[in-house]
């Protein structure tokens, strides 16, 4: 692609992209406000009470405001960065604070069927050659926790002999060759220059072709807004120099984030110092989330 092409692309997409960035920015402000107000109590419970039956951290009025009046993000040039994420599965303890943080930060629907990130548990019982898999969305885990809005794994393996067990955190891989972008009929989903794949929610028609096309099941559909949803590495945060919410809250440092253009960033070091793998490499998507400690059973 030559410079002229880039320029024209910039011109055609510029408006909607800017709108989108702004939208994210406002979203963060609102979510932050609610978290702040609730303080040490259960933030999620409060947000449920605040927005009626459907639990959003950001109510529809705030959403509309963010769309119509996007705040500006100063001094950010997406040509200067190349974001990437690392997941060290050997450190993950399955506490699911990343999920809770993500749902709060990004106004993700609170039920078990809409997730921007989730955690899978792999358990090899003694003598078995295959792993048993579940995620926090498993009905038994929900029943055990008593609610879809409390993210917990149950203790179902306490009476059996476990040979090996580990957790794998999943999220959108912000692929280099994203299937979701390829199939989007309107261009509402696009690959940004700094890495993340973004959705312009003011342009998405809600056909869900992208939901079908993602090999990782990373996308979901927000019924009440009628548009597609997925992780964007908290674009509103990283453009301000912050870490994504999940990385911020992870107590074990299992999630690593940074700029690959900076050779000393945590993620550059993580990739340099480890044998990293990606999920489903055979799909040809070239993910930008790099894993350490994957297993043959990981789907």
């Amino acid at each position: 692609m030559n410079t002229q092409d880039l320029q024209t692309e910039e011109e055609t997409c510029g408006m909607s992209r800017r709108g989108f960035l702004g939208l994210l920015g406002k979203g963060a402000v609102c979510a932050g406000a609610i978290v702040g107000a609730v303080g040490a109590g259960s933030a999620i419970g409060a947000s449920e009470a605040g927005s009626g039956k459907r639990a959003y951290q950001q109510n529809d009025k705030q959403f509309a405001e963010a769309v119509n009046n996007p705040p500006k993000i100063p001094e950010y040039n997406w040509n200067d960065h190349q974001w990437a994420m690392g997941v060290d599965t050997t450190r993950c303890i399955g506490c699911l604070r990343c999920m809770e943080a993500c749902k709060m930060e990004n106004s993700v629907q609170m039920d078990a069927n809409h997730n921007r990130t989730w955690v899978e548990r792999y358990v090899y019982l003694e003598g078995s050659n295959t792993a048993l898999i579940d995620s926090q969305a498993d009905p038994k885990n929900i029943a055990n926790a008593g609610s879809e809005t409390k993210f917990r794994f149950d203790n179902r393996y306490k009476d059996v002999k476990v040979e090996k067990a580990f957790f794998v955190a999943k999220l959108c891989n912000q692929c280099e060759h994203p299937s979701c972008v390829e199939v989007c009929p309107t261009g509402a989903t696009f690959k940004s220059k700094d890495g993340p794949v973004l959705i312009d929610t003011t342009y998405c028609i809600g056909c869900q072709y992208c939901v079908q096309a993602c090999p990782y099941g990373a996308r979901s559909f927000n019924e009440s807004r009628g548009t597609a949803e997925k992780c964007n590495w908290c674009y509103h945060r990283i453009t301000k120099g912050l870490n994504p919410a999940c990385v911020e809250v992870c107590p074990t440092g299992s999630r690593i984030f940074g700029d690959r253009n900076d050779p000393e960033s945590p993620v550059s070091l993580f990739i340099r110092n480890n044998h990293v793998q990606v999920l489903k490499p055979e799909m040809g998507n070239a993910p930008n989330v790099f894993y350490v400690g994957l297993d043959k059973e990981v789907v």
Binding site: A112, N113, N115, S135, A137, V211, G217, V299
Partner: peptide, 9 residues
Amino acid sequence: GYVYPNETD
């Protein structure tokens, strides 16, 4: 079996 959580919708 195991399905991705988002697939249940």
